[in-house]
């Protein structure tokens, strides 16, 4: 494993060292806001000590990234495959237009989490949030799964405008008392056993990653949000 000390280095230097490292395993120490770490990589396991900057793992193509602290905005932007594990919270636009792979956040996520996520056949993105999320969760969502686990059992776990423009995918919210208004494009139901079966393996993996009890999470009640239609704007237009 190559150890890279990030102290007093800018992102171009850090990213270059990661990209050109001959080792598959790379450990970054003293990371402090360097952007784009792991951008587009497919063959690395990157462990980060400290707080990386924006766009961590953008266009990620199969690499694994583990962060021992929180991350900033746009983590996993347009990622394709791989896994990003965050032992803390994530900033805004987590998993923007993510098209595959997994982002597991231990604590909370900011605004616009999972915005424009989309799935296609074997490319199927998953975002798991341990705590709660800001507004615009799953905005324009077109595919994949977002799970908000609400590990602290709070009342308000999503903000305003959740699922606005959603036309694909599913959002699971672990709460029995859902305190939110949803837009007309979104259908909200209590998740059935079948529904939960779909996320079981991710919950087990998540619980394993963060050393928590999966059984408690699996036996809880979830609400599931789905789009009403795959063509939400069909009736909006008239030909001129």
């Amino acid at each position: 494993m190559q150890i890279i000390d990030c102290e007093n280095k800018d992102y171009t230097q850090v990213c270059k060292e990661v990209r050109t490292s001959e080792d598959v395993d790379v450990c970054l120490q003293n990371c402090l806001g360097q952007r784009y770490i792991g951008a587009g990589l497919n063959n690395k396991t990157i462990i980060i000590d400290g707080v990386p900057g924006n766009a961590l793992g953008a266009y990620l193509d199969g690499a694994n990234i583990e962060v021992k602290a929180s991350v900033q905005d746009a983590v996993g932007d347009t990622m394709n495959a791989g896994k990003i594990l965050v032992r803390g919270s994530s900033g805004d636009a987590t998993g923007y237009a993510m098209r595959g792979g997994k982002i597991y956040i231990r604590d909370d996520a900011g605004y616009r989490t999972g915005i424009h996520m989309k799935a296609y056949k074997e490319n199927f993105p998953i975002i798991m949030i341990g705590g709660k999320c800001g507004s615009f969760l799953g905005e324009y969502m077109a595919g994949g799964i977002i799970v908000v686990l609400n590990l602290k059992d709070e009342k308000q776990i999503v903000g305003n405008f959740t699922g606005v423009g959603m036309h694909g995918g599913k959002i699971f919210l672990r709460t029995s008392d859902l305190n939110a208004n949803f837009p007309p494009q979104v259908k909200c139901e209590i998740a059935t056993k079948e529904d939960i079966k779909e996320i079981e393996k991710y919950i087990v993996e998540y619980a394993n990653d963060f050393d928590i009890d999966a059984n408690k999470l699996l036996s809880s009640q979830y609400h599931i949000l789905k789009p009403n239609s795959a063509n939400p704007y069909k009736r909006l237009y008239t030909a001129h």
Binding site: R99, K118, G143, H167, G168, A230, Y233
Partner: peptide
Amino acid sequence: KTRMIPEGSDAISP
């Protein structure tokens, strides 16, 4: 296939 979204689904660019 090219857009990597399901068939028949709207492709919306905000």
